[in-house]
Write a protein that binds this DNA or RNA. Structure first.
Length: 483
DNA sequence: ATGTTC
């Protein structure tokens, strides 16, 4: 059990656990948190899981954990780990079950006042156009050939169908497509689950939120992103549905064998992994990239459906209701990137689980319109509490493998939330705040209650105080669709 | 997160 005495303060926003070979740690842990957030996160197993992750073979530097951290499968949600050849590994627990779970932000030039009379109509249209719920099928039925194309092309597949513009793809992380996806490494069971779920939202913490740009902290960056104070935004939070879940399930099982075959010693069986340069590791990478591309396509199709909902609800009554894409990020992924570590550029496999890439200004991977601002970093808060738009910094390149936080982060479990909170009461409280809600189930709503989450404003204050991102704008929610 | 216990 890790206690506060195991942590060395570095600053108001940063702590360190030095590498300790007696505990099997190959590297240290760098943790971003205020003292108050740290006390909250020490109540679950997240920091111990970061210490466990520090024993993975081939780590190129410290394991980094974000202030929204909480306990996950094997590896903490909010964790970042970089492994390198020759002996680095890839671990599905360092990515998560919802491969390429991510966030897309769109923005409009519609002032809230102009849309206010039509908000109920709008949220109903969004609910109708964007199917949600556990196991829910959408309207698409993919053939084997089309599913393989989705795996290889990601959001580009949606563009081929006329559901994405060139600007949409340019404003997705990685252009909405990871190279070297290998659909042949995806199991028949995963394919079966994936066939019907493209264009659906899912459940749990996945949502569509209509917001309004409330506070702008960086006018130049907000302008570059097309965020206009007082105007409507639309945020989509979802991932690869049952397809990615099945790919993770398959990998967790099959990599147990790899751990034995390669004689890898891990402190927790949930940290199963395989060498990056092994048949097992390559197969998981190829399947994982397929799921990532499925999720990019999914968010793009949901965005198209959301645009249709805006048209259905607002055409003829509100002007300029077009939604332009601000950016689309992934916060559950592993990617090969080049980072300067110990003074030399190294090719590493960066696992981000509940952590967002935050490339600084000048990164060649950003579209030209964001060359000066840095990458947009999208941080949804808990339901009804507001979301943030941040931007990547040069410092994130040095301190956190160019990563920042991904949300508020749980303080207590879904089961505890369900026991302690009534969905109906929460729904009334949200409506009293003027937030329109469409929820698939009252139990599901209770699981996502703001009380079950940390304070997103303090999480953001931490990552900005630590310098790994900076504030651009805060969004206030006015309507939410949940599975 | 998840056809929420193959």
């Amino acid at each position: 059990m890790v206690t506060i005495h195991d942590l060395t303060p570095v600053s108001e926003f940063e702590w360190e656990i030095p590498a300790d070979a007696r505990k099997g740690m190959r590297v240290g842990v760098r943790l971003f948190a205020t003292r108050r957030l740290l006390e909250a996160v020490l109540k679950d197993n997240a920091v111990q899981q970061a210490v466990n992750a520090a024993s993975l073979p081939g780590l190129a530097g410290p394991v980094v954990v974000m202030p929204d951290m909480h306990q996950g499968y094997g590896f903490p949600i909010g964790g970042v780990a970089a492994t390198a050849l020759p002996d680095g590994v890839i671990s599905p627990g360092g990515i998560g079950y919802d491969i390429n779970c991510g966030v897309r932000l769109m923005a409009s030039a519609v002032p809230l006042e102009a849309a206010q009379p039509y908000l109920e109509r709008l949220v109903t249209a969004l609910d109708q156009h964007c199917p949600s719920g556990v196991g829910t099928a959408g309207s698409l039925r993919l053939s084997d050939a089309d599913l393989e194309k989705v795996c290889r092309l990601g959001a580009g597949w949606a563009q081929q169908r006329g559901w994405a513009t060139e600007m949409d793809l340019r404003r997705c992380e990685d252009g909405g497509c990871l190279p070297e996806a290998d659909p042949a490494s995806v199991s028949p069971r995963a394919r079966e689950r994936g066939r019907t779920q493209l264009g659906t939202l899912g459940a749990g913490n996945h949502f569509i939120e209509v917001g309004v740009v409330e506070d702008v902290y960086d006018l130049e960056a907000a302008q570059a992103m097309g965020l206009e104070p007082g105007c409507l935004t639309l945020m989509i939070h979802c991932g690869s549905r049952g397809f990615g879940h099945q790919i993770c399930t398959d990998a967790v099982q099959s990599l147990q064998g790899a751990v034995r075959r390669y004689g890898i010693s891990i402190p927790d069986r949930e940290l199963v992994c395989a060498p990056l340069d092994s048949p097992e590791g390559r197969a998981y990478l190829g399947a994982m990239r397929s799921a990532a591309n499925y999720a990019f396509a999914n968010r793009q199709i949901l965005a198209h459906q959301a645009r249709l909902a805006f048209e259905a609800a607002l055409a003829g009554v509100v002007r300029n209701f077009h939604l332009h894409l601000v950016y689309d990020i992934t916060h559950n992924i592993a990617k090969l990137e080049t980072h300067t570590l110990n003074g030399r550029a190294q090719r590493v496999c960066v696992h981000r689980k509940g952590a967002t890439r935050a490339f600084g200004p000048g990164s060649p991977d950003l579209p030209p319109e964001y060359a000066h601002t840095g990458q947009p970093v999208l941080v949804p808060g808990s339901m009804g509490t507001g979301s943030w738009v941040l931007a990547g910094t040069a410092e994130s390149m040095e301190r956190s493998y160019a990563s920042s936080c991904h949300g508020a982060g749980r303080v207590f479990s879904r089961s505890q939330a369900k026991r302690e909170i009534r969905g109906e009461a929460l729904l009334r409280a949200l409506e009293k705040q003027g937030i329109q809600v469409r929820a698939g189930s009252m139990g599901g709503l209770a699981e996502e209650a703001p009380q079950a989450y940390k304070d997103v404003d303090e999480v953001v204050r931490t990552v900005c105080g630590a310098g790994i991102t900076r504030k651009v704008a805060r969004l206030r929610p006015v309507a939410v669709v949940k599975g």
